[in-house]
Design a protein around this nucleic acid. Structure first.
Length: 158
DNA sequence: GCCAACGTTGGC
DNA sequence: GCCAACGTTGGC
């Protein structure tokens, strides 16, 4: 099967690309949106490429900051039935997990952030979901061509 | 901090 | 099954 490509959003205050670089590998927990869950459960495969996006970046800026890789199939997000977790969901249980996560691993960090306005200003990237107004989905599929373009831009910027 | 966009919930 | 109210996301 062909390799898949994704964009995954994270607030750098909560979990940044530097955090991922430190831990090397991380369960992408806390996704509580059905569409995003379905991508992880049904479509993501080990080896898929991930654009790491900082949302609500504040001083750090908002945009794509590097690359990660999917390193597990989807599995139950156990934070959903952990009453201590901020991602707790009373309807989920070990028998009925509802929510799914995958593990990702750090691949590379761009020398400079590729900001949202960079992306919006590039006509070649106009098909990307992330440049669309009001697009809140935290896990988005990315075309192979767009993934390659972003990689080139991100590596070329520093 | 504001607020537009949009997903989810719940009354009917 | 509709849809208004509500809560959250996320850019600015």
């Amino acid at each position: 099967m062909a390799k898949g490509y994704w964009l995954m959003k994270s607030e750098p205050d909560v979990f940044s690309i530097d955090d991922l670089a430190k831990v090397e590998r991380e369960p992408w927990d806390g996704i509580r949106n059905y569409q995003a869950r379905n991508f992880m459960r049904d479509t993501m495969r080990v080896g898929d490429g991930v654009l790491f996006y900082h949302s609500n970046g504040g001083k750090l800026g908002t945009g794509i900051v590097g690359v990660a890789e999917v390193v597990s199939e989807g599995y139950a997000d156990y934070t959903a039935w952990d009453a201590e977790s901020k991602y707790f969901d009373g309807k989920a249980s070990e028998a009925n997990p509802i929510w799914v996560m995958v593990d990702v691993r750090f691949v590379e960090k761009f020398d400079e952030i590729l900001t949202l306005s960079d992306l919006k200003g590039n006509a070649e990237l106009s098909g990307m979901l992330v440049v669309r107004r009001g697009q809140r989905l935290s896990i988005q599929p990315v075309d192979e061509e767009d993934f390659a373009r972003v990689l080139k831009l991100g590596r070329g910027k520093g």
